[in-house]
């Protein structure tokens, strides 16, 4: 663990339900499931106090939402993959931490709020991740949304606020980003045994991103996020944000031991289970011109300027 981070290690996992609901339908799904289980054991062997999940499949509009209901119980069904089965869950949430995270985000200029409602629809990605990584609720969790309008500044600040809250409460965490690499799925139903990455281009980009992860080059990936978004992300939201949040929460540098535990196709998208552990070594010789940001200043009111 680096001096200024309370994060023991970070995980990057896919949101799709196949590793949870149909791991035997394809050798690749089984491989992803095995990688999730390896990560589960590593979390159990760590002395983490909680798991913080940043999920790209929980979009928010009104600021940044943070799950705070102490016991979140429901049975979730995915919009597309409902035929694979239901996902009952019972998650223990570190409500005290969630409130601290919300407060830390507000102190950095973000609009944030906690949600504490029975029956709140926890998203597929979070349900898959927590069901596989923390099946017995050995440690509590916190889940944070991905605001659909937020871009780099907000996301960087949101990541830093997670670490602020950990420092404030003296807690140690494992952070989990739930996201595909390339996210273009096949638009028809397929035989799972024939699953593959949607295109060679997506696969080549995924392989390049995995090289960076394996080398521990998290800040390099953060700086490449806009390019990644343009190249291999379906344009559902304004930006590819997971590496921004992960780097901002864990530390914006390349001093990590990276391990790619699995990389497989999930209905055409790129699904990888990756671990990044803070280390003392560094990689790369690049500097970047995307400025760092500590405090979110809000909209710049561009639309209302220059028209007088």
């Amino acid at each position: 663990m680096s001096e200024d981070s309370q994060i023991l290690f970070g995980l990057y996992v896919p949101p799709h339900p196949q590793p949870l609901l149909s791991p035997d339908a394809n050798a690749g799904y089984a491989n992803l499931r095995a990688a999730f289980e390896t990560c589960r054991k590593r979390i159990e062997e760590s002395d983490a106090d909680l798991i913080i999940v940043y999920s790209t499949t929980w979009p928010s509009v009104v600021g940044h939402q943070i799950q705070a209901l102490k016991e979140s119980i429901w049975t979730h069904v995915d919009d597309d993959f409902h035929y694979l089965g239901s996902m009952p869950y019972n998650f223990q949430i570190d409500s005290e931490f969630s409130h601290e995270y919300c407060s830390a985000a507000e102190k950095r200029g973000l609009h944030a709020r906690t949600v504490e409602y029975e029956g709140f629809p926890i998203d597929t990605g979070s349900v898959v991740a927590l069901s596989l990584l923390n099946p017995d609720n050995r440690i509590p969790a916190c889940i944070v949304s991905s605001n659909m309008y937020a871009n780099r500044s907000e996301t960087i600040v949101l990541g830093k606020a997670a670490n602020d809250a950990l420092v404030s409460q003296g807690k140690k965490a494992v952070v989990v980003v739930v996201s595909s690499l390339s996210n273009r799925m096949f638009t028809e139903h397929i035989d799972p045994s024939e699953d593959r990455i949607h295109s060679s281009k997506d696969n080549e980009w995924n392989e390049k991103i995995l090289e960076f992860f394996a080398d521990g080059r998290l800040e390099d990936l953060s700086q490449l996020s806009r390019e990644i978004h343009g190249q291999i992300r379906v344009q559902k939201v304004v930006a590819y944000k997971p590496a921004w949040w992960l780097a901002a929460s864990m530390g914006q540098h390349n001093n990590y031991d990276g391990e790619v535990l699995a990389y497989e196709a999930l209905h055409g998208s790129g699904g990888a289970v990756i671990q990044l552990t803070p280390s003392s070594g560094s990689f790369g010789d690049k500097e970047f011109d995307e400025d760092d940001v500590e405090y979110y200043q809000g909209d710049r009111n561009v639309l209302n300027k220059g028209n007088h």
Binding site: W58, V62, V115, Y117, G119, P121, D123
Partner: peptide, 11 residues
Amino acid sequence: SVDPVFPNLFR
């Protein structure tokens, strides 16, 4: 049905 965006308004 709990609205994931406006859970404060719609349950």
